[in-house]
Amino acid sequence: MGGKTWRIGVLTAALSVGGCAGIGEAGGAAGTFAPVTTETLSVATVRVPEPGFWHGTPERPTGGFEYGIAAALAERFGLGDLEVIEVPFDRIVTGDFGGADLALADITVTPERAERISFSTPYLAAPPAILVRAGAEVADVATAKDLKWAVERGTTLEAALRDLVDPGEPPLVAATETEVVERVDDGHVDAALIDLPVALGYARQSDGRLAVTAQLPSDAVLAIAMPRGSANVEPVDSALRALSSQGEIAALARRWLDSDLEGGRVQQVRVLRTGS
């Protein structure tokens, strides 16, 4: 190898190191998270407490599945503080996070919502599930059609109930999820359609009065929402994949939702085949 070749080699190496420095500022191999407030991960959610998902108060959250994810993200990004901001669901899905970095609020990914906000990689499958009073059985779709149903207004569950079950009697459409659950609990309706992880949370806190009898086949998933086009999507995605591969998300689901996950899906609730 001649002297000229060596000189070119040294020059190339020097340029490479210089180039590396410039790219390094843009982010690490897994991406670099840039918070709105220094040293703080701010998270928007609908309400605290939310059974199974957020426990405690907004000022002092103490546990829950989504709280656990938020805390793990903060730790992974090296952020010492976690701030929780309550924002109504209909504002979150239009991209208003109340100034928070991201929203962790049982948000199902839909193409319409994806036009206004950016979603992370999914962290939990959230198929529609049938919440009933303990002891009630929904053996098949024919049985389900004959039941009296409740569902929350303005959610993807309204369409799912119509498409997958098509009840014989018009469902009770309630303003809030809490009201839907109360109507099942007090016997006004036979069953409610609720996202599976949420339904498991309600069943867990009902002291055995409520149960999740089946889930419906669906690709619905929960994901973290961020402002449209946010550069934080990459680091959040990488962090969620790491938490998933390390079994941390499954451990949180076991602890707070009484659920065994496999591939992000709850395994212990049977699937009610609908033929679609």
Binding site: G27, A29, A30, G31, E234, P235, S238, A239, L240, Q246
Partner: peptide, 12 residues
């Protein structure tokens, strides 16, 4: 594998 375990971002 690096992507799945969260070491690499989609840029990598």
């Amino acid at each position: 594998v690096g992507f799945q375990i969260g070491l690499f971002s989609s840029s990598v």
